[in-house]
């Protein structure tokens, strides 16, 4: 009989201390591309044509062409970076894209630096030390589940931050939703929300849950959580990595600041 206890002890501690200090485990990530409209070529719409989820749109306004970028629809596929002839889109390692307001994910020129509006004020006092999460897969590709399951591996060890997944919605404080919300799962999703006690919060995890992404719409799906449930934190990403999910959870608990404003990570901020 092998001695698993001894084996475990010999392996030592595997958990990162991040975000307090240490390794976030995401080196090499290609995150949401940076956008610099000053470099845009007139009449060019290569990026918009290469953007499958429609995160990049080009409108012919009266004063010339305008490119709009909505990171709530971005799946970080890097196609815009590859087709852009002038480096208006460049690769970046930015992944901490949790936002309290949907509009914070849309690129605007003068990004407000204030931290959205404060949630309910009471959240840190009530839930700051411990949060119970009920996850509902509303039609994901299983990519988000793969990263959510990773949160409980020894490296991220989510329990150390006081956050737990719970089986029953009756014990849950937060409903964490992945997927674009298929018509078949809309009912079970709403029932789960109804079964949760007040006060309760909702987080849209992954670009599908935020906006539908590449998979939303069509005959079988909605376009994410907007119009289905009131969302407290949006976290786009395809899928968002475990560190991004941890950041968004801590942000909900007011234990970490929101990093993204006006569609980009604030100046002087390394994105982690």
């Amino acid at each position: 009989m092998p001695l698993w206890t001894l084996y475990g002890l010999r392996q030592g501690k595997a958990s990162t201390r991040w975000p307090a200090s240490g390794n976030d485990g995401q080196s090499g990530t290609l995150g949401m591309p940076h956008f610099d409209p000053a470099k845009c070529q007139e009449g060019c719409r290569l990026c918009a044509d290469a953007c499958l989820p429609g995160a990049i749109t080009v409108t012919d306004a009266a004063h010339g062409v305008r490119v709009a970028v909505d990171y709530g629809r971005c799946v970080a596929c890097q196609m815009c970076v590859e087709v852009c002839p002038t480096d208006a889109f460049t690769a970046s390692g930015d992944w901490a894209f949790g936002a309290r307001r949907r509009e914070d994910l849309v690129w605007i020129h003068a990004a407000a630096s204030n931290d959205g509006e404060s949630l309910k004020g009471q959240i840190h006092r009530v839930f700051g030390r411990s949060l119970h999460v009920r996850h509902v897969d509303a039609g994901s590709c299983n990519g988000c589940e793969s990263e959510l399951q990773a949160l409980n591996n020894p490296f991220y060890n989510l329990h150390r931050l006081g956050v737990f997944f719970t089986a029953s919605p009756r014990f849950a404080d937060l409903l964490l939703v992945t997927g674009p919300v298929t018509h078949a799962l809309r009912g079970p999703l709403l029932e789960t929300y109804e079964a949760m006690p007040d006060p309760k919060f909702v987080m849209a995890v992954g670009t599908c849950a935020v906006s539908g992404g590449t998979n939303g719409g069509g005959y079988a799906c909605g376009n994410g959580l907007d119009g289905v449930l009131p969302v407290d934190v949006y976290l786009p990403g395809c899928p968002p990595n475990p560190a991004a999910i941890i950041h968004a959870l801590l942000m909900l608990l007011e234990r970490a600041p929101q990093r993204v404003h006006g569609g980009r990570i604030g100046a002087g901020d390394d994105g982690a």
């Binding site: 392996q11 595997a14 485990g25 995401q26 080196s27 090499g28 990530t29 290609l30 970080a76 890097q78 690769a91 990519g143 793969s146 990263e147 399951q149 990773a150 409980n152 591996n153 020894p154 490296f155 991220y156 899928p239 990595n241």
Partner: peptide, 19 residues
């Protein structure tokens, strides 16, 4: 699950995407 995590981190460094 720890070995899976190491494998995913290898993926990320090689390709830029854990998946």
């Amino acid at each position: 699950k720890y070995l899976e995590e190491l494998a995913k981190q290898i993926n990320c460094r090689a390709v830029g995407s854990r998946l």
